[in-house]
Simulated scan of single mutants.
Amino acid sequence: MTIEAQDAAPRHNPSDWLWYAGISAAAVVWWLVYSQLIPFSESVTSLLPVARDSHTGEAIAFFVYDVPKVLLLLTGIVFVTGVLRSWFSPEKTRAILAGKREILGYPLAAALGVLTPFCSCSSVPLFIGFVSAGIPLGVTFSFLIAGPMVGPVGLGLLYGLVGWQIATIYLVFGFTISTVAGLVLGRLGLERYLQDWVRELNAGPVGDMPEERLTLVGRLKIGVEQVREIVGKVWIWVLVGIGIGAAIHGYVPETVMLRIMGGEAWWSVPAAVVVGVPMYTNAAGVIPIVEALLGKGAALGTTLAFMMSVIALSLPEMIILKQVLTLRLIAIFIAVVSLGILATGFLFNALL
């Protein structure tokens, strides 16, 4: 091998192998802990001075089982999506969407929202970047709806907690709502309802940014940093959501839950949406509640409508979007997305 070839060959820092070994060991520990959650929760509950089959015992067992389960799922999913994000940056997303035919832009934007790990906290900078890049407003809305509502973290948690069937149903309808809502909003010509400073923003060229070359270890470090940042911010809402779910699971009688969120009452779906909008949580916090509601016999359509409203129409996200949207545009946005969510809820309650 020539000197030039030797210089061109990749050189592995000895610390790189420590990263590979550490991540591999962490994956093994993750799986071992996850596989022992049921006996762990039963053991902890048995140590407490409560009957296992009592309301309190049911609630405690649910809480002790779901807290580590959701946190483990969240950690694993955030790590994987963080590594993927190192290949799929917001700038690359903008470059993909810019210049596409508008009719193709809606499903493409919704698909990118499903595939990329952008939550509602990223809505404002992404929205500004998309608008400044000349991407149609309706296409941008498709991405903004799909991102938090049908993102990989929420889907992964939903799959792990309630099964692939419901997760797939949620994916299909979330994608459809994102695409159709973006199409409707795009046809309404709402650009005039953007905040003045956003409309006057001078866009720079898209897609000309040099791509940063990262090693595999560099991408693993990004995944670990994403876990620290995201899990560090949402763990408290996981506890709150699981606490609510445990209370529902242990104390709310099935007859009461069926009366409130059963498919027979026509008002159950809009009531679920109204209740869900002001809740301050995310996919990690709301999915344990969804798990408990379904376990109590709540109708699938009503439960999905509740989950979609919490994630896609949360009050905190609307407050953030107020920085770039006028109140009129926010109201139109809420109305269109709500109609899609209501349609999903009513349809599933009618079919199932």
Rank of each mutant, 00 (worst) to 15 (best):
7 D>W: 05
8 A>W: 03
9 A>T: 11
14 P>L: 09
14 P>C: 10
16 D>S: 15
17 W>Y: 15
17 W>H: 13
22 G>A: 14
22 G>S: 14
23 I>F: 08
23 I>P: 02
25 A>W: 09
26 A>T: 03
28 V>D: 05
31 W>E: 01
36 Q>A: 14
39 P>T: 04
40 F>R: 00
41 S>G: 08
42 E>L: 14
43 S>R: 09
45 T>G: 05
47 L>N: 02
47 L>M: 15
51 A>E: 13
55 H>F: 02
57 G>L: 05
58 E>D: 04
60 I>P: 12
65 Y>N: 12
65 Y>V: 00
66 D>S: 14
72 L>R: 05
73 L>S: 05
73 L>R: 00
74 L>R: 02
77 I>M: 07
79 F>T: 09
82 G>E: 06
84 L>R: 02
86 S>L: 03
87 W>E: 00
89 S>P: 00
91 E>Y: 04
94 R>Y: 13
96 I>D: 00
98 A>V: 13
99 G>R: 05
100 K>L: 14
103 I>V: 15
105 G>S: 15
107 P>M: 11
108 L>E: 02
108 L>M: 15
109 A>Y: 03
110 A>V: 12
110 A>E: 09
111 A>V: 10
114 V>N: 01
114 V>L: 13
115 L>C: 09
117 P>L: 12
128 I>S: 12
129 G>H: 07
135 I>V: 15
137 L>E: 06
139 V>F: 06
140 T>H: 01
144 L>A: 07
145 I>V: 15
145 I>Q: 02
149 M>D: 10
149 M>W: 01
152 P>A: 06
152 P>C: 04
152 P>R: 04
157 L>F: 11
158 L>W: 08
162 V>T: 14
165 Q>E: 14
166 I>S: 05
167 A>R: 05
175 F>V: 03
176 T>A: 15
177 I>T: 11
180 V>C: 05
181 A>Y: 06
183 L>K: 04
184 V>W: 07
189 G>H: 01
189 G>E: 03
195 Q>I: 09
195 Q>T: 02
197 W>T: 06
198 V>G: 07
203 A>T: 04
204 G>D: 06
208 D>L: 13
208 D>S: 04
208 D>E: 13
212 E>P: 00
217 V>M: 09
218 G>K: 01
221 K>V: 07
221 K>H: 12
226 Q>V: 00
230 I>P: 01
232 G>L: 09
241 G>E: 08
242 I>G: 05
243 G>V: 11
248 I>V: 15
248 I>K: 07
249 H>L: 06
250 G>L: 07
250 G>M: 11
251 Y>F: 15
251 Y>K: 09
258 L>Q: 11
262 G>W: 08
263 G>M: 10
271 A>P: 01
275 V>K: 00
275 V>F: 10
280 Y>K: 03
288 P>M: 11
289 I>W: 07
290 V>Q: 10
295 G>M: 06
298 A>V: 09
298 A>I: 08
300 L>I: 14
302 T>R: 03
303 T>K: 02
304 L>E: 13
305 A>S: 15
305 A>C: 11
307 M>V: 03
308 M>L: 14
309 S>H: 03
311 I>G: 01
313 L>G: 03
318 M>Q: 08
320 I>V: 06
321 L>Y: 09
324 V>F: 11
324 V>T: 15
325 L>A: 08
328 R>W: 08
331 A>L: 15
338 S>V: 04
341 I>Q: 08
343 A>Q: 05
343 A>K: 03
352 L>A: 11
352 L>D: 10
352 L>N: 12
